[in-house]
C-alpha cells in the first residue's frame, strides 16, 4: 500500500507515456503520429520533473526564509528537452506538408501503397 502512495505518480505518467507511444506506432495518420510523439515526450518530461520534487519544497528561486527547495537540475534538463521536442515537431510538420504535396495524402497506408506501385513499375 505504501508503494502505491509513493509511486502512483510515476505509474500514471507511464500510462500516459504508453498512450502516446501507442498513438505513434498504431495510428496511420501522420499528423496524429506527431501528436502522439508529443504526448510521449511530454509524459517523459513529467517523469523527470516528478523526480525532482522534494516534499515540502518550493520552486528553486532563492527567497528569504525558505530553506527547502525542489531540485532545479531536472527542470533545466527538461527545458532543453521541451525545446528539442518543438524543434522536432516543426520539422515533422513541414515534412508532412511536403508529403501531402507529393503523395496527395497524409495517411501512412496511402503513402505506402503509392510506394509499392512505384516499385512494381520500376521492376
Amino acid at each position: 500500500m505504501s508503494v502505491l502512495f509513493s509511486h502512483y505518480n510515476y505509474w500514471v505518467v507511464i500510462v500516459l507515456m504508453m498512450i502516446g507511444f501507442y498513438i505513434v506506432i498504431a495510428q496511420g495518420n501522420l499528423v496524429k503520429k506527431l501528436i502522439g510523439l508529443n504526448i510521449f515526450q511530454t509524459s517523459v518530461f513529467i517523469l523527470y520533473i516528478s523526480a525532482g520534487k522534494v516534499s515540502g519544497g518550493t520552486a528553486p528561486i532563492l527567497a528569504d526564509g525558505i530553506t527547502l527547495y525542489s531540485n532545479p537540475l531536472p527542470h533545466v534538463l527538461i527545458l532543453t528537452a521541451i525545446v528539442v521536442g518543438i524543434a522536432t515537431t516543426a520539422l515533422g510538420l513541414s515534412l508532412i506538408i511536403r508529403i501531402r504535396d507529393t503523395y496527395g495524402s497524409v495517411e501512412e497506408q496511402d503513402v505506402r501503397a503509392a510506394e509499392g506501385n512505384r516499385k512494381q513499375e520500376s521492376c
Binding site: 507511444f21 505513434v24 501522420l30 503520429k33 510523439l37 510521449f40 515526450q41 522536432t88 520539422l91 515533422g92 515534412l95 508532412i96 511536403r98 508529403i99 507529393t102 503523395y103 503513402v111 510506394e115
Partner: peptide
C-alpha cells in the same frame, strides 16, 4: 526521400 525522412524522424525521435 520525404517519406524516408519522415519514417526516420519518427524512429529517431522514439
Amino acid at each position: 526521400a520525404l517519406w524516408a525522412a519522415f519514417q526516420y524522424l519518427i524512429v529517431g525521435t522514439i
